[in-house]
């Protein structure tokens, strides 16, 4: 009777299994589920019930976090389809993409060293729009003309961008403290 964490989150959140997602429906369902399962609703009950509520609520949180973020959702879709994206080991990317990455990275590190918060925030916005383009590609590769191998490669590109995003955040945080 243990909770299977690989059980389909789309079903739990009553959403079709696709990359494009109805964000509002996802959030509404999330709050509705937590209203039912959260341990605080069962805090006055004995240990066994509370433990069960804990498992449920943990799973609902995990599902929500997986579905609401583009990268996590894309990886989850690949996982459900049984495609091994080899995300950690396969880093073979096109030379143009890698070159672009290096340029980004240099720009971030220069702005960081110069203590230029405005430039970092500008880079943040540019990166966000670059990520949006990649996310649009993913929508096509998952939902319109399904091609999971191509999707897996696009997911790897998105991971690079996400990493960069974190680096900008860290640089900004470092400048503030």
């Amino acid at each position: 009777m243990s909770i299977d964490l690989h059980k389909d989150y789309f079903a739990l959140f009553e959403l079709p299994r696709s990359y494009r997602i109805d964000r509002e429906a996802l959030e509404r369902r999330y709050l509705q589920l937590q209203q039912q399962v959260h341990p605080d609703r069962h805090a006055h009950l004995p240990d066994a019930e509370r433990r069960r509520a804990l498992q449920w609520a943990t799973r609902v949180n995990e599902g929500f976090q997986t579905l609401r973020r583009s990268l996590a959702r894309a990886r989850y879709l690949l996982d459900l389809a049984g495609v091994d994206a080899a995300l950690e080991t396969n880093t073979a990317m096109s030379p143009e993409f890698l070159m672009e990455q290096m340029e980004w990275r240099e720009a971030v590190s220069e702005a960081h060293q110069a203590g230029d918060v405005d430039e970092l925030e500008h880079l943040h916005r540019r990166l966000r729009s670059a990520a949006l383009t990649v996310e649009d590609e993913l929508a096509v590769l998952f939902d319109d003309r399904p091609d999971l191998d191509a999707a897996a490669e696009t997911v790897r590109r998105l991971m690079f961008l996400e990493k960069l995003d974190q680096e900008i955040d860290e640089a900004l945080a470092a400048l503030e403290s």
Partner: peptide
């Protein structure tokens, strides 16, 4: 408490 553990889990699931 221990003896009712499975029973409690089953009831919790039913209730949810």
């Amino acid at each position: 408490n221990r003896g009712t553990e499975d029973f409690a889990a089953a009831r919790m699931d039913k209730s949810i």
